[in-house]
Amino acid sequence: MGSTVVPVRVASVRRFLMCRPTYFAVEYAINPWMDPARPVDPMLAVGQWEALRGVLLRLGHAVDLIDPVPGLPDMVFAANGAIVLDGKALVARFRHPQRAPESGAYEKWFRDRGYEVRCAERWNEGEGDHLAVAGMLLAGHGFRTAASSHAETTGHLGRPVVGLTLIDPRFYHLDTALAVLDDEQIMYWPGAFSPASRRRLHSLFPHALRVEEHDAVRFGLNAISDGRHVLLPTPATSLAGRLAAEGYEPIALDVSELAKAGGGPKCCTLQL
């Protein structure tokens, strides 16, 4: 009988931007997970965020911080603030007015540090809907980011964009439905995508890890991977097992308080 060879996974050092959830709250509902009537523990949210940051630092990654702004409770979800590649930053234009002022804070942060900055003119929610892999940008659209923004993204960042249509409102950002595991590999839940987008993903990534819905709805795909370690929410237990069988090292994190606003580990980090 043959035996399955488990690949040796190699981590690469990353740099992330994060925003402390000092003003975190669920004060409005702009996705199906948010319920302002559901109690939120801000101190617990800060503790969970600190634990995530601590794990990233222990793994050898760098974490920069942007100051939180009063009145912007979702600013903790730094992934939505911009797309950053090769010293260029395309700052988000948010679909919902509640988050629109975040753009100014992120624009200032990047300009002050010498990035080549452009502000999106069409709806574009940053890395929440744009994931870099295999020399391209996978771009989710249908809820928060407009398909018409793709030309602008390519023009500023110089990467080809592969549009993917999201069809399930529970998975309103690409990073809730798909995660990049390494330079060439992804995992995703097919049910979040239109039939044409599923075919496109299958063609581009025939050996991708297809995740079950029960792990997807636990934000299992809102994960951070450095090529070896995969940080994902604690409830996504079966996905963690599958990742371990593929040679990755899953690290479970309790982000239950942040999940009340529809976010997980990936939402809290913007890769620089």
Results as ranks from 00 to 15, higher is better:
Val46His: 10
Ala259Val: 09
Ala236Gln: 08
Ala196Val: 10
Leu65Ser: 12
Arg198Lys: 04
Arg53Glu: 15
Glu152Cys: 04
Pro32Gln: 09
Gly163Trp: 12
Met136Asn: 05
Leu232Asn: 04
Leu204Gln: 15
Gly140Ser: 09
Arg200Ile: 04
Ser225His: 07
His207Ile: 09
Arg228Lys: 10
Asn31Phe: 11
Ser194Glu: 13
Asp226Met: 04
Asn124Ala: 15
His130Thr: 15
Ala245Gly: 13
Pro97Cys: 00
Gln185Asn: 13
Ala62Leu: 13
Ser225Ile: 02
Gly60His: 07
Val69Ile: 09
Ser197Asp: 14
Pro36Tyr: 08
Glu213Phe: 04
Ser103Leu: 03
Arg93Lys: 15
Asp226Ile: 04
Glu257Lys: 03
Glu184Gln: 08
Phe205Thr: 02
Ala261Trp: 06
Cys268Ser: 14
Glu257Tyr: 04
Thr165Ala: 12
Gln48Trp: 09
Leu166Asp: 01
Met187Ile: 15
Gly155Cys: 11
His173Thr: 11
Ile167Glu: 14
Arg20Asn: 08
Ala51Asp: 13
Val6Asn: 08
Thr154Leu: 07
Pro265Met: 01
Leu164Asp: 15
Cys119Pro: 01
Arg38Gly: 05
Phe171Asp: 13
Gly104Trp: 00
Phe219Pro: 01
Ile167Asn: 02
Gly2Thr: 01
Arg9His: 13
Leu138His: 05
Ala244Trp: 06
Tyr23Thr: 07
Val133Gln: 04
Val40Ile: 12
Ala196Gly: 09
Leu90Ser: 07
Phe24Met: 05
Gln98Met: 12
Trp49Tyr: 09
Ser103Pro: 00
Asp67Thr: 11
Asp183Gln: 10
Glu127Asn: 14
Arg159Thr: 02
Ile30Arg: 09
Ile224Pro: 01
Ser256Ala: 04
Arg14Val: 01
Tyr23Gly: 11
Ala11Cys: 05
Leu59Thr: 04
Gly263Ile: 07
Arg14Pro: 00
Ser12Lys: 11
Gly54Lys: 00
Leu239Pro: 04
Ser148Trp: 10
Phe219Trp: 06
Gly81Gln: 05
His156Cys: 11
Asn80His: 10
Arg99Cys: 00
Leu17Cys: 09
Glu184Met: 00
Arg144Pro: 01
Tyr248Asp: 14
Thr22Trp: 02
Pro73Lys: 01
Ala179Arg: 06
Ala132Val: 06
Glu121Arg: 01
Leu17Ser: 00
Leu166Thr: 00
Asn222Ser: 10
Cys19Phe: 04
